[in-house]
C-alpha cells in the first residue's frame, strides 16, 4: 500500500531530475555557445593581419628623415626589422649584407625582438615562416625564416638557404625557379629545425614580388612568403 504523499514525492523527484538535466543542458549550451564563431573571427583577424602586414610592406618606402624618391620595400622591411640600430643599415645595402642576415652577424637578438614586435601579438601563439628568395638567382641563399614558439622564445631557422629548402621540399619547380604555395606547405617544419616537430596547418601564404633597386647594386625580383600555423 502506498502511503499518502509517497507517490507524489517520487513524482516530484523525477520532475527535479528532469528539470536538472534540462538546466545542465542549458548551461552547457551557453558555455559552449559562440566558441566556433569566436574561433572563426580570430582566424579572420589572423588572415587580415597577415594581408595587412604584407600590403604595408609592399607600400613601405622609407622611414622619416631619409628623403629618397625610390621605392625600397625590402630595405624598409630590413630597416624596420633591425630598427636602424645594426651597423649595416645606414652604411650600405649590398646584396651580401642583406643575405648576411642569415649568418647571425648583425644583432640576432635585436632582430628577433624587433620582428616579434613587428608581427604583433596575434602571432604569439602562431608559427611563422618568412622566406625571401631571388627569382632570377634561385640558387642564392636568400632565405630568411623564423618561427615563433611562445612569448620570448623565438627560434631561428639557422642558415636555411634556398638550396637547402629546395632539397627538403623537393617540390620547387626548377623551371620557374619560384616557390609555390604548395611546395612551401609541403615543407615539414621539423626539417627546417631538427629540434622542432611542428607541421604547418591552417597556413596563410601570400607571395609578393619586390624589386630591389640600386642600393642592392642590381635589380632583383624577390619573392616573399609569409606563413603561419597553429602551434
Amino acid at each position: 500500500m502506498i502511503a499518502r504523499g509517497q507517490a507524489s514525492f517520487f513524482d516530484a523527484l523525477t520532475f527535479l531530475l528532469i528539470v536538472s538535466a534540462i538546466s545542465a543542458a542549458l548551461v552547457l549550451f551557453s558555455t559552449s555557445y559562440g566558441l566556433q564563431a569566436q574561433k572563426a573571427l580570430y582566424n579572420t583577424i589572423d588572415l587580415d593581419y597577415t594581408n595587412s602586414l604584407m600590403n604595408a610592406l609592399l607600400h613601405a618606402k622609407y622611414e622619416t628623415g631619409e628623403k629618397t624618391s625610390g621605392n625600397y620595400p625590402v630595405k624598409e622591411f630590413v630597416i624596420q626589422a633591425v630598427k636602424r640600430e645594426l651597423s649595416f643599415v645606414g652604411s650600405s645595402y649590398t646584396k651580401d649584407k642583406l643575405i648576411s642576415l642569415n649568418s647571425h652577424t648583425y644583432g640576432e637578438t635585436k632582430l628577433k625582438q624587433t620582428l616579434k614586435e613587428l608581427m604583433g601579438p596575434v602571432f604569439y601563439q602562431k608559427g611563422l615562416i618568412f622566406l625571401m628568395t631571388d627569382i632570377d638567382k634561385p640558387n642564392d641563399k636568400f632565405v630568411y625564416c623564423l618561427f615563433h614558439e611562445t612569448g620570448d622564445n623565438l627560434e631561428y631557422c639557422s642558415d636555411s638557404g634556398f638550396t637547402e629548402i629546395k632539397d627538403i621540399s623537393g617540390h620547387i619547380s626548377k623551371k620557374e625557379n619560384v616557390f609555390s604555395a604548395s611546395s612551401l606547405l609541403a615543407i615539414p617544419i621539423n626539417k627546417l629545425n631538427t629540434n622542432k616537430d611542428k607541421t604547418p596547418s591552417n597556413t596563410t601564404t601570400k607571395i609578393a614580388t619586390f624589386i630591389i633597386d640600386e642600393n642592392f647594386r642590381e635589380k632583383r625580383h624577390v619573392k616573399m612568403t609569409l606563413m603561419l600555423w597553429d602551434l
Binding site: G5, S8, F9, D11, A12, L13, F15, L16, V19, S20, I22, S23, A24, L26, V27, F29, S30
Partner: peptide, 19 residues
C-alpha cells in the same frame, strides 16, 4: 513533494538566467 518541485524551479530559472 513540494520541496523538490520548488528546488527544481529555482534550479531551472537560475540556469535560464545564467544561460
Amino acid at each position: 513533494s513540494i520541496m523538490p518541485i520548488v528546488f527544481a524551479i529555482i534550479v531551472f530559472f537560475s540556469a535560464v538566467s545564467y544561460s
